[in-house]
Design a protein around this nucleic acid. Structure first.
Lengths: 211, 211
DNA sequence: CTTGCGTTCAAACATCTGTTTGAATAGGAT
DNA sequence: ATCCTATTCAAACAGATGTTTGAACGCAAG
């Protein structure tokens, strides 16, 4: 127990909230894993909900520390490479099974079942990256797309990454090999990149196919 | 109240389970919406969990009734068309906002946070379609892919559809227009189809890009 | 040593929730 | 009318869980 009770509660809370969701997580469980008394949450965080907010903030700090996305934002790189970096980085974050895996799970939870904290997450974490993709995608297709179609393309791309986190239980039953090792995950990232670059090309080729 | 208590409990249960998840759903809430006494769940279904299983089964029956997937299984159709049908059908199911919307939400929940019922769902609902895709995809790419890469491609495709359901709260904050109307959803389906067909072509074009 | 403060602890409390119970009700068959 | 069965009902029960409490502990300052 070399960490402070506050740190232990944050890491334990991250795990439990990620694994069971806010409601299913019990303060008794969190305190047990943190090795603290049950009343420590009240003492240090006032309530379970306040602890949850602190855990969210802590989780984001850790994620950005471990997988910084500087290269993706580098406008001097070719758009192609920037997209590759983005996809690989996103998939790695999502499937990281160290402590960061809990961050991805927590985020997936917030996206699927928002608490009041979602708006904060979107505005501070998602939106900046989304805006970068908005200016990146048009550089990768010849046809000029309207904003809404660009947004659709963006979701086609991130959807391919998200599915490997969101549908993990299903994947592990149907075809676990696709993400069963770091090499497999790497190959999955390659596949998403090839598929996405092809998809972007496909949009150009099939133009006029729509009214 | 022209329906039987059993029917009312099933529809009410579907809504509440879909909106709040198994654990957060309360039998009192379900019974209130169904207009039945609190002990009716025990009387007709033995327990909350048994009700949940029956709701799942009921939900699948309704989904298959409303969006049958016969054409997708028709091996006499060109592979291209079968994929288009599959994508459009899946997206429609996922974004249907009638009673069926609850089905999609319920399924998304099961996929993300499996109960013991997940295995049943996968084996009876997902797997058959997955197996069809497994024989369909190779017909759409020239390069011969191994099984694992085929499974990756499959998830790239369904991931593009799933994201519009799973990340709906985020989409509605960042770019609601992409799924804000039946026409918009239709156009999203078109985009996924173009993107996927392009992606499949891209796999051929970029072969050799991997070790 | 005594005091004071931050911290830890076990027990109790209040509420919510799934389940159970036993009586009340209704409707049809005899 | 009587009986039987199926159904409905309100109340109670039991367990889990977030919160609260007040005492105990430890340690540094005076």
């Amino acid at each position: 127990m070399n960490e402070t009770p506050i740190e232990r509660l944050l890491t334990a809370g991250l795990k439990v909230f990620a694994e069971r969701g806010f409601r299913e997580a019990t303060v008794r469980d969190i305190c047990a894993r943190a090795g603290t008394n049950i009343s420590s949450i009240r003492y240090y965080f006032a309530s379970k909900e306040m602890l949850y907010r602190e855990v969210l903030a802590y989780s984001f700090r850790e994620a950005d520390r471990k997988y910084p996305q500087l290269a993706f934002s580098d406008e001097s790189l070719p758009p192609n490479d920037r997209l590759k970096i983005f996809i690989r980085n996103l998939l790695m974050r999502l499937l990281d099974e160290s402590d960061l895996g809990f961050h991805a799970r927590l985020m997936a939870r917030e996206i699927a079942e928002p608490t009041e904290a979602l708006h904060f997450i979107i505005d501070t974490v998602m939106k900046p990256r989304f805006m970068i993709l908005r200016e990146l995608i048009p550089q990768l297709v010849e046809e000029t797309l309207d904003q809404t179609d660009i947004d659709r393309v963006i979701h086609c791309i991130i959807g391919q990454c998200l599915v490997f986190r969101h549908s993990k239980p299903m994947i592990e039953r149907l075809c676990p090999e696709v993400i069963s090792s770091p090499e497999a995950i790497d190959r999955t990232a390659d596949m998403i990149i090839r598929f996405s670059l092809g998809g972007l090309r496909g949009i150009d080729l099939s133009k006029g196919g729509l009214p």
